[in-house]
Every structure is written in structure tokens, then in C-alpha cells.
Design a protein around this nucleic acid. Sequence first.
RNA 1: CGGGCCGUCGUAUACCGGUAGUACGUCUGCUUUGGGAGCAGAAUGACCGAGUUCGAUUCUCGGCGGCCCGACCA
Length: 419
Amino acid sequence: MTVTKQSHLFTKTRREAPADETAKNAQLLIRGGFVHKEMAGVYDLLPLGVRVLNKINGIIREEMNAVGGQEVHLSALQNPETWKTTNRWDDEVVDNWFKTELKAGGMLGLGFTHEEPLTELMKNHISSYRDLPRAVYQIQTKFRNELRAKSGIMRGREFLMKDMYSFSSNEAEHLAFYEKAKEAYFNVFRRVGLGETTYLTFASGGSFSKFSHEFQTVTEAGEDTIYISKENKIAINKEVFTDEVKKDLGLGDDFIEAKAVEVGNIFTLATKFSDALGLTYKDETGEVKPVFMGSYGIGPTRLIGTIVETLADDKGIVWPKSVAPYDVHLVVIGSEKPDVATHAEKIAADLSVQGFDVLLDDRDARTGEKLGDADLIGIPMRVVISEKTMAEGKLEAKARTADAASFMTFDEVVEALKS
RNA sequence: CGGGCCGUCGUAUACCGGUAGUACGUCUGCUUUGGGAGCAGAAUGACCGAGUUCGAUUCUCGGCGGCCCGACCA
């Protein structure tokens, strides 16, 4: 795997949070050099941030592929004609379009979701029951002209979304896939370290199903209020929290109210888009039928913010191993001494050979700054190399969440990293 | 979009109707080196526009921008 020298990294950490950010996620991500704020609700991802994003996206891809999802990448620019078909072009109907003009004349939109173009596209590829079911997904930039951006990277005007769409021949086939997708979603949230705090939440379902399912992670930074059932770990969104719904779900009255952020949402579209855009297939008898659809979204950038919000401590970010930008932060104390520096590079290379990504802090900086930055950046394992550790013939390792460091042999460190 | 607060180096602030100072941070050099060190030096700022005025960073108006509450969140 790779070794990145911190002296080579172009980003720098900041001691102080910028004044115009109050959200914890943005403050820490900016201080650590993961993101740069371009303007309200618009953030750039820097090298460390990209590494985290790639980890998250990797997990999402594995889970989507596991349920048969096929990855695509649709355009962000949208043709108004497609959207007029479903009456979703008009600003009166959809109030958060970013629209722009074509020099050659005419309008374009920047996609805030992709049901229309993908349904249109699939008309070229679905025509028989033999072509079903299918699931197609992408991880792509979405644009939403929010009246008010807020909460750091949790609610931006430009953000990444993994959106998957399923195409089934009927409701039963759809529901079978829907359940698999639901499990895949749980897997994603568990794997990125949010399993304990993320609840399947019943929310309003739109026109074609009673409920949609949201995945809500409990955090004070959230915008939603949910009611978590003490009986069986599911929750109800405040927007549909009525006696009738409680009864429908067979739940009593024992709930905990919590603020939460919607990190995922899956819902049944039924034939809304296939009817409007003419996506049909012929069944075994030759009868023409509309394709039955579902939609499944996760916001990778919002997930980054949520992980920071829920797991950070007073010293900085705490990344779960699965999404950390590096596996180990190798901090050299006394890096100006040639023998220490050489030894550190050797250890870094050895760790790399063992399959770990290493961030090597070889900067000529003070100990306090280096250790403080290590806490801020939040890599799960910190290993210190100094004259002291060399004299011991060992390494000094400390998990980000541990209180104290301990001396370990190289093999013991490798073991700890693997566990 | 309704409401509120607010725009002075990166951050926090000071002063002032006469073109801006301090601290921390940043940069350079030297010394230092186990939880943000010392010395010396340096760079960096009045959001934009109009008006009032001899003169505006300061006063007035208008834009633009930021944050927060609400609404919205396919």
C-alpha cells in the first residue's frame, strides 16, 4: 500500500476553526485539511477528504454490487424536455433546480436526482420480462438550489449522492429486491461505523406506498426528529408520528425522541416514472406492462459529515478503520536526526509491505504540534518513532481512542492493525 | 422565502470623519525538539458601489456575502 509523507502533503492543519463555520463537522474537516469551503453549501474535497470519500464509496459499491447493482455515471446536465414529461421542470413544482442557459439557445438543468433520465435511458434496454429485474446505480454530483445551506457539509448545494434505481416486473419482484436493498443499506451504515446509531425510520411514502424508509443517524446536528421505539430498534419520523402509524407498525407507546440526520432513503416509485415516460415490457403472454420501480439514495459526503459529528471527541476527528484516510499515522519525533528519520522510513516501508496505508509525519515540527495534528486528523492508530522508542527497540503505539500509548514490537503493531 | 445577527490581515479584536494598531496564527533565518518553544525579521486587512464631506474604514442608502432560527428538504 502507500506511504504519504506529511511534509509532502500540500494541505496544512489549522489551529483555529474558521469563524464562519459553527458546524462541528465542517470545523474539524477544515482544520484537519479534509475539505475547503468554497462558499456557503459548497465544499471542495482535499487529498485527505478524497481518501475518506473513496473508502466510503468503495464500501457502497461493494454493497450495491452485492445486490446486483450495475454502476453507471449519468450526466449532471439535464434536458428540460425529459423533465417536462413528468411535470418536474417547472419551478412552481420543483423549487430547487439550478437552471442555466445554453449559448446555442434553450435551457439546461443541473440534476438534483435522476429518475427521469435513467428511466428514459432504460427504455433502450428493457423490453421483455426477461430483461427484469435490474438495478442501476451511480455515485454522482447532485445540485440542489437550497434556500438555506447549513450544517457544514451535511446539507450543501452541491453534494455527492449514490442513487440506485430498481426496475422490476411487478410489485412482488420489486419488494423482494427492496428488502435486499434495505439489508445492503444496513451493511453500509454498519461498515462505515454508524451501525449503532442508525435507525430504520418510517417516513411518508409518497403516492404509491404507505411508507418510505429512511436511515436516520442520531446526532444533535441532524435536521430531523425521529421517535425510536424501545421495543425493536426502529423509528418513526416526526412527520408521520401518529397513533394510526404506531398502530400500523404494531408499536406501543414507548419511544425516545431524538434528533437525527437522514443518511439514506429508500422508497417505492411503483410505475410513476415508467408510466409517464413509457418504460414498459412484455410479459410472458405478450401483454405490455409498465416497469415497477424503486429508488435508493445515500449521500457519501453527508456520511463523512455524519461520521465526524457522531464519533469526534474534543481533540478531533475519530475515523473508523473502514473509512480512515490511512491505516496508521507514523509520527516521527526527532525527525531532524538522520538515524531516526531513516528508521522511520524503514518502518513506514515495512508497514506498507504489510498492506497498510501510512501517513508519515516527517515534518520538522514540535512534538505537541505533531501529536495534536494526529489527534485532529483522527487516523485510528498512531505509532510514534523517536530516539526513545529506538532505544527500547520497539514502537510506541496508541489507538486514537485509547488513553495511553504502549510499547510494541513491529509484529505486535501489525497484529493490532489487523484486528 | 419570512425573521434575526453580522461583514476591519487567516483568527480574535482595537481605534478613528484625517488611509489602521495589537495578539495569536502564517512566512524566512538561527537556536530548539516527547503535547503547539525562544530570538530576530517579514508578509497579509477596511466586501462592493453610490451618496454626504475638503476628506469615508468610520455617517447614509443600495447591492453582495456569511452565520443562526423558522419554512423547505422528491
